[in-house]
Amino acid sequence: MNSFLRTFARNRGAVIGLCILVAVVAIAILAPLLYPGSPWRMVHRPFLAPFVLDRAPLGSDTVGRDILAGLVHGSRVSLLIGLVSTLVALLVGVPLGAISGYFGGWVDAALMRVTEFFQTIPSFALAIVIVSILQPSVGSIVLAIAIVSWPPVARLVRGEVLSVRTRDYVQAAIVTGQPVHKVILTEVLPNVVSPVIVLASLMTATAILLESSLSFLGLGDPNVMSWGYMVGSGRSRVLDQWWISFIPGTAIFVTVLALNLIGEGLNDAFNPSLRGRRT
């Protein structure tokens, strides 16, 4: 464990990413304390520039809502949707991939055809269709993102399982007569978990981007403030009041970058063949 942390810490980008993520999570948790009111309240004159008014340090948007309040509350939605949809995608993708890789044969063939079916549809288009049909809400957005992001998980897990199941310790477990589910859960999966964790961190970043893109197009949950919504609602003012879109856009950029950096650090730390590459 110590060597893992040491390798992770050696990647300076990953540490910076982690710090940013911790800060964003802290802001998200503390949002109701920082800005007790609703971020939808129209509290200022519209189109206030940043740093003009102490009460509105980042200015106000097209109808006078505080941009900083929106940013703080928006972090909750972006992180929540990113994490939950990734979790759902893992819950679908990991078991499917494991079963497919472990049993092989027609089970594998059938499950992989299903996976490919989803992979051949452009994921963003599919997400738009799902959200439009189900009406935009946090639930439908999580579902849409999960549906478009589980196939890569399934394929990755399948590939790893295919190689792990031929190892001697797995064969030994099978020979000693352990039930199948026990072999998969205790012998196979623990040994494929590291690439999945790396993938999950990157998926969370992608999910945040997807949610922002949906909100930008007006397909976000209309009852919650999110960064993508803020970018979208300021879009038409981008030539004159650029900050309305730019500030939440920066928040998305920084958070997604942080998650990617962390993913890379995790990859370094988990992947023994690369260990020490940077020294």
Partner: peptide, 12 residues
């Protein structure tokens, strides 16, 4: 856009 902003304002 105006109609969306309006709905948000009325909601508030």
């Amino acid at each position: 856009e105006a109609w969306t902003r309006w709905a948000e304002a009325v909601k508030q």
